[in-house]
Design a protein around this nucleic acid. Sequence first.
DNA 1: CTAGCAGCGCGACTTAAGTCACTGCATCGG
DNA 2: CCGATGCAGTGACTTAAGTCGCGCTGCTAG
Lengths: 234, 234
Amino acid sequence: MTAERIDLAAVLGKTALLSGLSQPELQTLASRTVRKLFSSGELLFSEGEPCHGLHIIARGKVRIFKTSMSGREQVLAVNTPGESVAELPVFDGGPFPASAVAIEDAEIAYISRRDFQAYCMEHPEVALKVLQVVGARLRRLVGIIEELSFTTIRQRLIAALVKLAQSGGTKTARGIEFQLPATHQELANQLGTVRELISRNLMRLQAEGLLDVDARQIVVKDMKGLSALLETTS
Amino acid sequence: MTAERIDLAAVLGKTALLSGLSQPELQTLASRTVRKLFSSGELLFSEGEPCHGLHIIARGKVRIFKTSMSGREQVLAVNTPGESVAELPVFDGGPFPASAVAIEDAEIAYISRRDFQAYCMEHPEVALKVLQVVGARLRRLVGIIEELSFTTIRQRLIAALVKLAQSGGTKTARGIEFQLPATHQELANQLGTVRELISRNLMRLQAEGLLDVDARQIVVKDMKGLSALLETTS
DNA sequence: CTAGCAGCGCGACTTAAGTCACTGCATCGG
DNA sequence: CCGATGCAGTGACTTAAGTCGCGCTGCTAG
C-alpha cells in the first residue's frame, strides 16, 4: 500500500502538469489517485462519453484519435509517460471529443474531476501549468489543420520522414537510416489518409532517387533534396 | 476618464472569461486595460508574432485564420463581442499560432500578459474559466479536423447551410429563407476550399431541387432532404 | 506442414478537388 | 454616362485522392 503511494507520487512529480510540487503535496494527490491498467489495444475511453477524471500516463503509450463513419481514423496525438490525456473535458464538463486507445500495455494514474479541480483552486500555479499543456495541444491541432487544408499527402509524408530521420536516424555510408515506427496503415491514420497512398508515395520518392525503401527500413539518400520539397509551393 | 473606466468594466463583466466578478474587481482590471481601435480589414496580429497580452472584443467581429504559401486561407474561428482572442499564447508564452483580422470596425480591450497572469494567480476561479473557454476552442478545432479529414466539401457546405438556416432563417411559403453572411470567397475560406466549388455545389443542390439560389439569397425547399445528406456515408 | 492472417505492392479505375480563363452583372465614383 | 472594380457563374481541363481487387510474402498457431 504505502509502497504504491510513494510510487505514484514519484510518477506524478514527473508529469508536466505537476512538476515542481513538494513531496507532501504529491503524497496528498497520490492518495486520491486510482491506478488503472490497460493492455495494448484496449480503449481508455470513447468519443462522446462523459468524462469523470484526469488520466496521467505512468507507463505505455496512448493514441488519441477520431473515427469516421466509414471507418477511417485521424490520429490527433500519441502520448507517452509523463503526459496527461484529455485535460479539457475535466474542466469544461463536456464529453470526450475523441477516443483513446492504449498502443502498448499501459498504466494510468486517474484523478477524479472533483479532486483535481479542487486542487487547482487551492494551487493556482497548477491551473496555469494546465493551461500551458493545453496550449501545446492546441498548437498541435492548429498544425494538423494547416497540414490538412494546405498540403498534399506527399508533403505530409515527406515531413513525417524528415522528422523521423532527424530524431531516430543513424548515419551510414548510404545515408540516414531508420525504421518506420509502425505499419503503413498506422502512418496513414496519422497523416489522415489510406494505406495505399503511403505505399505509392514511398515508391515514388524511391523512383526519384531520394530514398531507398525496403519494407519498413528507410534509407534517406538525399536529405537536402527531401527537405527542399517541403519549402516549395508545388 | 472615469466614464471610460466604468464603460470598460461593464464590457469586461460581460465576457465569458470574467463574468461573475464583483464590480470593484472589474474596476481594478479595467484600470489595467488599454482600449484599442481597429478598422475593418486591419490586422490585430499575425501568425508567428510574439504575444504580449490578452485581447477582449468589446465591439465588432474578428476572424482568426491561417494562410498558406499559395495564398489560400483557412478560417479557424470568427469571434464576436464578449469573446476573447488568443488566450493561449498569453499563458504558454509562445507566438500567435494564427493571424487575426477585424472584419468589422472593432474595439478591443487589451490586458498585458503579466497583469492577467497575476490576476489568475490571485483568482483561481478565473483560471478555471479560461480553461473552459479554451476547452470550447479546442473542441471547435477538433471539429474542423474531423470535417477536413472525413467529409467532402459538399457535406461541409450542406452543414454550413443547415446551421445558417436554423439560426438565421425565416420560414416562408417557399421554405426557409436566409442570406449568406458574406461572399462566396469568405465562405470558401471557412470551409477550407475555393470560391468556384461553393458556386458549383450550390448550383448542384439547386439542380437537385433542395435549394433555390439567387445570388446570396438562399431558400431551403427541402430541409429534411438536406439534413439527411449529412448522415449518409456517401 | 499448412492454412490463415497481417502487411505490403501494384494496376485500373472513379471521383473530388482545384486551376485557368473567360463572361455577365451590378455598383460606384468620377 | 462610362470605365473600373468586385462578385458570381461556368466550361474545360489537370491532378490529387481514394477505391477495388488481387497477388505476394512471411509469420505463426493449430
